[in-house]
Design a protein around this nucleic acid. Structure first.
Lengths: 171, 171
DNA sequence: TGCTCATTAATGTCACGTCAGCAATGAGCG
DNA sequence: CGCTCATTGCTGACGTGACATTAATGAGCA
């Protein structure tokens, strides 16, 4: 398991001598940043009607697929809030979408699940997800998507986020 | 100029019927998020010794290349803080790295530049940038980078972030 | 000139993401 | 049992990022 402060698969000790870097690499980094920002902005817009944020939606959708989960387990499945996503879950509990049940055996843990109100949101969220997917990827060919997915997976190999997504989409 | 809430090149009116979406599209979105997060985390780590954040470093590097800039111009060149990045600049001014000069002709504007102390940081920041570039991209082949760059540019075509990066890297 | 409208920058509000630190609990081991 | 250590979840501090609103200024036009 890599340390928290690991990038993209490179532990601090094995960093490359930063020699072979071109401006394109920098542009690629900022393009990734920009794509993520614009995507998030759009997603936010779509979710505004439901009064949900992208992070909250991610949690609800993961719970819909894999509840019950402890807070730590959930943290290992989502990209957001790498540690324990207590606070985001907190808001969802306050709004009555997520339930928190103290563990019987291990009384440190809390089991999370969707309330009825939370479950009712799921179809809408899936719909929005699909719309955002379509908006984000419709300009890419199938081949391009494949290359990007493979490349990004490789970049993320050995990171916490990478592990989370591997479990989530292929675990 | 597209409206602020435009994604990835799709204005709200011309959205696709979200039909042809696969799980891969969703994975791609989350991979983009994860790559950006891990990259930012790493960058943060590298910058910690300088007591700077990635957003602050971006601003210093842009100013190094194109000062003087008004706040609005700067906002159009960076990916962060789409509106006027008053507050981030504020901290940099307080720490003595950026200077703010009221405009003589148009007294609404403020001209931003690097102080001597700010300029001294630039080489170090460029070094860090190169290191992060290397760490992020060294697992990708040249071809893969090309495909990703082209694809991302296309995704961002017509967005504010896309315009910012186009100006910055090819303007 | 006087009016209206656009632009620029600043600010308040909200929700995160990161980090560090903490309390409670559980597990391993003598 | 008693000690130590790891894990789980919570919380405070800090710095964004998004959005809306506002104040000041400039530009266009009758």
């Amino acid at each position: 398991m890599p340390a928290a402060n690991t990038v993209v698969g490179v532990s601090p000790e094995e960093q490359l001598p930063a020699g072979a870097t071109t401006q394109e690499d920098t542009e690629l980094r900022y393009l990734l940043l920009a794509a993520q920002r614009e995507g998030a902005r759009y997603m936010s817009g779509q979710l505004r009607a439901l009064n949900l944020t992208p992070a909250q939606a991610e949690i609800i959708l993961v719970l819909a697929q894999r509840e019950p989960l402890t807070l730590a387990e959930l943290g290992r499945l989502i990209v957001c809030e790498s540690n324990s996503p207590s606070r985001i879950v907190d808001t969802l509990v306050k709004r009555g979408m997520v339930s928190r049940t103290p563990g019987q055996v291990d009384r440190r843990v809390v089991y999370l699940g969707l309330t009825e109100q939370g479950q009712e949101l799921v179809p809408k969220l899936q719909e929005i997800d699909a719309a955002v997917d379509a908006a984000a990827a419709f300009r890419l060919s199938s081949d391009e998507k494949q290359v990007m997915i493979r490349g990004l997976r490789r970049m993320l190999d050995g990171t916490v986020s990478g592990a989370a997504l591997a479990t989530r989409f292929h675990g």
